[in-house]
Amino acid sequence: MTRGRWLLALLALVFAASWVVPGFFAEPHLPDPDLMKRLAPPSEMPPFGADDRGRPLLNYALQGAQVVGIPALVAGLLVALLGVVGGLLATVGGGRVEGAVAAVGELLGALPRMVVVLVVALLVPRDARGLMPIALTWAILAAPGAMDEAAAVAGRLGGAAFVEALRAHGFSRSRILLYHVVGLNLRPVVVRQGAETMMQVVFLEIALSYLAIAERQGSFTHSDDIHSWASLLDLGYKVVLDLPSWHALGLGLGLIAMVAVTAVTASAAARAR
């Protein structure tokens, strides 16, 4: 079973690399249009076909990966880490500290996230505009939920009583907290939370990119020189309007599927014993 867990973890890493690493090879600008190749399918312009101005969709895929890759992973890791903190606080029985953290968490959790995210996006100087500040903001806002759930799991263990019971068996405090509490019990919860946050950041980026276009603004999540996966999906959804853009829709959903598979695999690896 341990081998199975490590295999799943390795798979998760491979899947993550498949959509993060290509971002490092993205061109800084899209090429000029070639209107003769408008909406060319992958058979005419491999590997993914062309957009409605004849430009390769591969550029969109790579640029989009550059936009979401690292920020999504960092946000997921941050939420997982904060979830661990929440679970440990419930175990350690911090009393006032736990109470104060819970109160702050309730307030953070109650803030309208999109407004906070939008304000953060607008505050970032144009030249520094990117997804990372937004992803970190989203992670901080999502953390109270993760901390809550982790605290509930730790609470079901018995909290401080659980620690004391294991201490009576001769285990050290640090081993109990890191291995028994975090490693064995909190792991599935915090990894799942982290994986979900990672996916949410990708979806958030797509939503924000589209909303920026709809509101006739500069992009909130990346420099205006490049395009995100939102452009693929904005083109792709127009199949409902009889535009032959199936290949764009397929590519966009396929990329999101890669992120989803990463999340699912990581969660499965965390659950496996």
């Binding site: 600008h29 006739r216 603004q217 992009s219 420099s223």
Partner: peptide
């Protein structure tokens, strides 16, 4: 792109 091909590096921005 035209200015880039002519040897000017560039950054582009959209204004609300």
């Amino acid at each position: 792109n035209q200015l880039g091909q002519a040897g000017f590096d560039r950054q582009t921005y959209k204004l609300s």
